[in-house]
Amino acid sequence: MSRTWQLQEAKNKFSEVVEEAIKHGPQVVTKRGVETVIVISYEEYQKLILSQHKLSEFFRTSPLGDVEEELDLSRDPRSARGNIEL
């Protein structure tokens, strides 16, 4: 169960915050009433890191990856700004 801690309380009870993160999941810390950081266990962090994929892999596995049409990546030679007088 995630819990919300005020910054001062989290500083005073840091060991408890860490234990709660290990046993019960992410712990939210607020600063001046605004959710600011989350304390998570190293195991949870590893899961997050390992679940990330490279952007190139995303495009490679995209449903649009097999589109037969070529993308036109050439640049329009016309000026984007037109004539600007200063």
Rank of each mutant, 00 (worst) to 15 (best):
D66E: 06
Y42Q: 09
I49C: 09
S2V: 04
I22E: 01
V18C: 05
G33Y: 01
R32I: 02
E69I: 09
L7P: 04
L50V: 14
S2W: 08
S79T: 11
D76P: 06
L7F: 10
N12L: 15
D76Q: 13
F14I: 12
K31L: 10
K23W: 05
I22R: 00
W5A: 04
V17H: 02
E57I: 00
A80K: 14
K31F: 12
R3P: 01
V18Q: 00
R60P: 05
V67K: 03
K31S: 13
E9G: 07
R75K: 14
F14T: 06
N83H: 15
Y45A: 09
R75Q: 14
V17G: 01
S2M: 07
Y45R: 01
E68T: 09
Q52P: 06
R78I: 12
G82I: 02
E35N: 10
F58Y: 13
S15N: 14
S56Y: 04
D66T: 06
E68R: 11
L71A: 14
L86A: 08
K11S: 14
E43F: 05
E16A: 01
T4H: 04
S15P: 03
G33N: 06
P26F: 10
F14Y: 09
V39I: 09
N12C: 11
G65R: 08
R60L: 04
F58A: 13
V17P: 01
K47A: 10
P63Q: 04
V39R: 02
E43D: 08
Q27R: 00
N12V: 07
Y45I: 00
V67D: 02
E85S: 12
S56Q: 09
E16L: 03
N83I: 15
R32W: 08
L50P: 00
H53W: 01
E85V: 06
Y45G: 07
E9Q: 13
A80E: 13
E20T: 03
Q46H: 11
L86Q: 12
H24C: 09
